[in-house]
Design a protein around this nucleic acid. Sequence first.
DNA 1: ATCACCTGTGGGAGCGCTCCCACAGTATCT
DNA 2: AGATACTGTGGGAGCGCTCCCACAGGTGAT
Lengths: 351, 351
Amino acid sequence: MAHGARGGRSGGRPTLEEVAARAGVGRGTVSRVINGSPRVSAATRAAVEAAVAELGYVPNNAARALAANRTDAIALVVPEPETRFFAEPYFSDMLRGVGAELAETQMQLLLIFAGNDRERRRLAQYLAAHRVDGVLLVSVHADDPLPDLVAQLEIPAVISGPRSAAETLTSVDSDNYDGARQAVEHLLARGRRRIAHITGRLDVYGAQRRADGYRAALRDAGYEADLRLIEVGDFTEEGGHRAMGALLDRCPDLDAVFAGSDVTAAGARRLLREAGRRIPDDVALIGYDDSAIARHMDPPLTSVRQPIQEMGRRMIDLLLTEIADRRPAPTRELEPRQLVLPAELVVRASS
Amino acid sequence: MAHGARGGRSGGRPTLEEVAARAGVGRGTVSRVINGSPRVSAATRAAVEAAVAELGYVPNNAARALAANRTDAIALVVPEPETRFFAEPYFSDMLRGVGAELAETQMQLLLIFAGNDRERRRLAQYLAAHRVDGVLLVSVHADDPLPDLVAQLEIPAVISGPRSAAETLTSVDSDNYDGARQAVEHLLARGRRRIAHITGRLDVYGAQRRADGYRAALRDAGYEADLRLIEVGDFTEEGGHRAMGALLDRCPDLDAVFAGSDVTAAGARRLLREAGRRIPDDVALIGYDDSAIARHMDPPLTSVRQPIQEMGRRMIDLLLTEIADRRPAPTRELEPRQLVLPAELVVRASS
DNA sequence: ATCACCTGTGGGAGCGCTCCCACAGTATCT
DNA sequence: AGATACTGTGGGAGCGCTCCCACAGGTGAT
């Protein structure tokens, strides 16, 4: 009777055992029905389902998690302050894709911000306690220790945007190299010949890939690299403004700019306007991300679109696969998968 | 040995029992230390803490949840599609407040969208499974069955914005009545005498209260109610535009408008402009919510600000209290608490 | 000295599941 | 006919905790 009062045997929620008694079968059989095992006869299954309905039975999740050693939850970790999460459409698109894919399953999504030190410590605790079956890492910087922590704890994880060409975690990315190529080839096709590039932060792998794509497109078209046409930026508007100034000083004859992000392009546009250059008449401009900024810019900005929602969906796919694969043989070594989705050029008036 | 292989006795995470053995104490004592019970001597506590550190022990959450019948998680339920969640600053402010308050505890926050039927069914399942200790309900419409479901399942809950004066759930709200009063009194003080009101959807209790406050302010100033000055709106811009048209037809001599929301005010402004009325020279305009719209309107809109972040914080306070109070005596009846926080008028150029 | 009452501690029982072994009953092969 | 294999089922053991009872040893009142 030690526990009789606690659980409230009579008034509380029904248990598996009670369902079994009601249906006149054993505990194991009810468990099999609940979990959709095929090893149950149709008649038995019907009887159990009737008992479940009559009693309004819902499995106790904690018991299930304890016995089966899983949580049926995965975490979406955002290593940014909440402010940015709401400000950038990237996250909402990603969340939409993730949510849509997850709705098919009975997995639960946890949204975890790790924008400051305290939040990060909490997250580390949380992961150490294995309170989730897997982790989605989005928007992680190259020097972030989070991916290593996750790997060390042997928690299945998928990262959006590999940290380098040698990424050890499973990753999903869009094709930054080809996206940049498309942008540059489009500019070449429109007759531009002096095409500059303002890069993103080069410690972000995607920014490196975009710069690579830019160079490759020019090289393949027979133009030899002109380093004066490349200026390192940092994804910010201010950086774009500054970089554009430097480029214009060095190469007053440039006739196109491929910017590493839409925000960067906005900064570049501001300087071009100050310098009296018309877009696209004097200088064509292309951004990256196809964000709201691009659509509302004057003139509307040609930009490279990443299929972010689709990326979210595929990240869940891969994560669920990884979780399934690690069960029940945690020893088997899985080679990391690197999925790359196509990017797409959205042409508007700026080019 | 049935389970020997499953759990991985040797290589896996340490258990309470192992910590106890290491520290040379009993299982109960370790549990007491982990849970911060005062009934442990300083020496014993130190020994246990050392063992915990050496072994890198982290409690197994599922086991804890099963044994103690709690989950250490609460849900923030958003009965809207995700789109609106990201579009409206209301939610991000709320989330910030909630997050800040929750960071003090070791409770986990779950963000759950219930914007469509499927999501709602999932949520119902989730609640029935008692996978959270408590629920925060935000932005709930009057006819939403969610609050009743929660009440019926006897899950502690706090609602933002009571559904009526007779709300049975614990609620946190801002003072809509007084906010409206402040707006109208401000207009009166500036010499306006023909003050119109475009209400919000009147099935939203807060909108009713704003209308009440509007009427009370006028009555207290000695003006008898002129029903022609009130037009029912619906919180949308289109509704504001339409309502403003109706008001102007009926009362061409009005000299001020108090709108039920900033969005409504934006619609009203559009019509006023079309009608050639200058703001604030001919007609003063006041909105509600103090959203980004208000700051960026031309002219900047005077608006009533609700302390949304603070509301989020207080909701958590109340919810945690409620959870604590229901343990371990679920029978004790708690009277619902209705907390009302002050609203504040932010004066700008439109009035 | 006796009794009552604290403080600190150990450990049994139980939370509600899943996993897996055992076994009855039937079908299939030699 | 016997051996072999499968299908469907029951239930023991165990997951890692918390709760609570029991009890040792100390302290103060009578």
